[in-house]
Amino acid sequence: MFTGIVEELGEITAVETLDDACRFRLRGPVVTDGARHGDSIAVNGVCLTVVDHEGDEFTADVMAETLNRSSLGVLAVGSRVNLERPTAVGARLGGHIVQGHVDGTGEILERKPSEHWELVKISLPADLARYVVEKGSITVDGISLTVVDAGPDFFTVSLIPTTLALTTLGLKQPGDPVNLEVDVIAKYVERLLGVQGGTR
C-alpha cells in the first residue's frame, strides 16, 4: 500500500527486453536504502517487486500485462520515474490510499502555467470517468493529486512548485502518457451497491 507521496525522482539505467516481459534497472538512493529481494517499490504508480539490489540501484521485472495496461512500456534508459516505498503501518497517510494497481493511462493534453502553480489537463478513459469527481483524489504516475475539474473525458489538476520540481509531472509535455489509478474506495462502493456504468 502506498500514499502517492513521491519519495524521489529516479532514473532508468538499463532495460532488458524479454520474450513476454522486460527487466528494468533503476537508480534510486532513497528507496534502495534497506531494500531487500521481494520488497515492493512503486515506479510511476506501478507496484513492482525488487528482484535484485546493489548500491543505489535495483532491478524489477515487468510482465506483458503490466506493459500493456500502463505507460511503463515507453520507458527507456535515461527516463526519469517517480519512486515510492510502501507506507509503514502507523505512518501518516500524507496522500490517499494508493494500491499501485494502474487502472488505465491518460495523456497530457494541456499545461497552463501561472506565477505560483500550473494547471494540467489530462485525458480520461471513458470507463474511469465515473470514479473521478471534483475535489476527489486521483493518482497520476504515482502522485496523489486533487482533481480540480472533472469532465466526461478529461480532468485537471493544479501542481505546486514542489510537485513540479520533484516529480515527472514537471517534465511531461502534451502528448506524453501517464498512469492513472482512481480512488479504490469509489470502486468498492460501486461494487457493494451493485452499480454498473452509473445505473443500478
Rank of each mutant, 00 (worst) to 15 (best):
G90K: 12
G90S: 13
G90D: 13
G90Y: 13
G90A: 14
A91R: 07
A91Y: 07
A91H: 15
A91K: 04
A91D: 15
R92P: 00
R92Q: 14
R92L: 15
R92Y: 03
L93M: 14
G94F: 10
G94K: 10
G95I: 03
G95M: 02
H96P: 01
H96K: 07
H96W: 08
H96L: 08
H96R: 09
I97H: 10
I97E: 09
V98D: 02
V98G: 05
V98M: 08
Q99C: 14
Q99P: 04
Q99H: 14
Q99E: 15
Q99K: 15
G100M: 04
G100V: 05
G100H: 06
H101F: 09
H101W: 10
H101S: 13
H101A: 12
V102F: 03
V102Y: 05
D103R: 08
G104Q: 03
G104R: 04
G104L: 09
G104A: 15
T105A: 13
T105G: 09
T105R: 09
G106I: 00
G106V: 06
G106C: 12
G106R: 03
E107F: 05
E107T: 15
E107Q: 12
I108F: 00
I108Y: 05
L109W: 08
L109P: 07
L109T: 06
L109E: 15
L109R: 14
E110C: 07
E110H: 12
R111I: 02
R111E: 00
R111G: 00
R111W: 03
R111F: 05
R111V: 01
R111N: 06
R111Q: 11
K112P: 03
K112W: 00
K112C: 07
P113H: 01
P113M: 02
P113W: 01
S114N: 08
S114A: 12
S114I: 03
S114P: 02
E115S: 12
E115H: 09
H116K: 13
H116V: 07
H116N: 14
H116T: 14
W117E: 09
W117G: 06
W117T: 04
E118I: 01
E118A: 05
E118P: 02
L119M: 04
L119H: 01
L119D: 02
L119K: 01
V120Y: 04
V120G: 05
V120T: 10
K121E: 09
K121M: 09
K121L: 11
K121N: 03
K121F: 02
I122E: 00
I122M: 08
I122R: 04
S123W: 09
S123V: 11
S123A: 15
L124R: 07
P125R: 11
P125F: 15
P125Q: 14
P125L: 11
P125K: 13
A126N: 08
D127H: 13
D127A: 11
L128Q: 07
L128T: 02
L128C: 08
A129S: 15
A129L: 06
A129P: 03
A129E: 02
A129F: 06
R130I: 13
R130S: 11
R130E: 15
R130N: 11
R130A: 14
R130L: 13
R130T: 10
R130Q: 15
